[in-house]
């Protein structure tokens, strides 16, 4: 396949909005006559990026839901040996690995799994993938529990998953990712709300700081193709104070940031309707009535 053709296919996959990858692959398959392109290394990478970009949800064989994140991706070799690298030469891989299979950890659920980005197959490698430091592991579990509670209270059932990962041991950096996929393709729409928060906190201390971003992307496709995108960065840190439980205080701060942001959007909707849409095209001419084609002075 030519480079430019591969680039075109990568572009289609990269631009696929939430939940629409399958349709796009079917369209391409019908046009080119087969789906061989899915085995190309560049396409496999594009499929993996799609999973990570949208913080896709996957279901394990036992029904547990996990989140695919870039932060959670692990080298496939690393999982074979706790002590990687070294020797080199003599090492023999037990079996050929499928290039479409990638390894991830969902730290909030302590699960290491593989995802085949082509077949969609998910396999559990380890369901007790814990942080080596007990205090960190404990804190992470509390954070995951508070996050789940928050999601259950504020997001539509079955649309949203969150995950947590933690770096460091005493002075920690926690990454909290929330992925809401609100799809209704039967009525020609779908949308996502993705939040990615970074929290710095010293275990046992009474303060923490939160930065992050929210990305919203909606697609409406009845009689057209209409896309709506919002990207908001929260670059200047929001300082928080622990009152009672640290994990709960952190999630409460995130709730407040998301809540305030969502409320601010109400003003934006009004601004679009009242100002911007009017400047793009008025509802009526300033005369207050339709254009009089019949009595135009030109006729």
């Amino acid at each position: 396949m030519s480079d430019s053709k591969t680039k075109a296919l990568q572009y289609f996959i990269q631009e696929a909005t939430v939940g629409e990858l399958e349709y796009i692959i079917d369209d391409i398959g019908t046009i080119v006559g087969n789906k061989d392109f899915l085995q190309q290394p560049e396409i496999i990478q594009a499929l993996r990026e799609y999973q990570e970009r949208h913080l896709n949800h996957q279901t394990l064989p036992d029904g547990t839901k996990v989140v695919v994140t870039e932060k959670g991706r692990r080298e496939t070799e690393v999982m074979k040996e706790p002590e990687p690298e070294a020797e080199g030469e003599g090492e023999q891989l037990p079996a050929e690995t499928d290039p479409s299979e990638f390894t991830y950890v969902d730290e909030a659920r302590n699960i290491k799994f593989t995802l085949n980005v082509n077949s969609g197959e998910v396999k559990v490698i380890n369901d007790a993938e814990k942080h080596h430091d007990e205090a960190v592991q404990g804190f992470k579990e509390q954070l995951a529990e508070s996050l789940d509670k928050y999601i259950a209270g504020h997001y539509k059932e079955l649309t949203t998953l969150g995950t947590v990962s933690v770096e460091g041991t005493d002075q920690i950096t926690a990454h909290i990712e929330i992925s809401c996929h609100n799809l209704n393709h039967k009525n020609f729409w779908g949308g996502e709300w993705l939040s990615r928060w970074t929290v710095t906190h010293t275990l046992g201390s009474s303060d923490f700081e939160v930065t992050g971003k929210i990305n919203i992307h909606n697609h409406y496709f009845e009689q057209g193709n209409i896309q709506f995108e919002l990207n908001k960065s929260f670059d200047s840190p929001t300082a928080g104070t622990v009152s009672g439980d640290a994990a709960e205080s952190i999630i409460a701060t995130i709730n407040k940031l998301e809540e305030n942001y969502q409320v601010s959007l109400e003003e934006m909707y009004e601004e679009i309707s009242d100002n911007h849409m009017k400047n793009l095209r008025r509802k009526l001419p300033f005369t207050g009535k339709n254009f009089e084609w019949g009595v135009s002075k030109l006729m």
Binding site: H154, Y155, K156, T159, T160, C180, H181, N182, W189, G190, G191, E192, W193, I216, N218, Y220, Q223, I226, F228, E258, E259, Q262, V263, L265, Y269, I272, S273, M277, R281, K283
Partner: peptide, 22 residues
Amino acid sequence: RDELDSVYVGKSKQIINTGRMH
């Protein structure tokens, strides 16, 4: 024009506010 306005504003609002319920 009315449709684009209602999709950009109304539909987006609906999609966002039925996902995250503020």
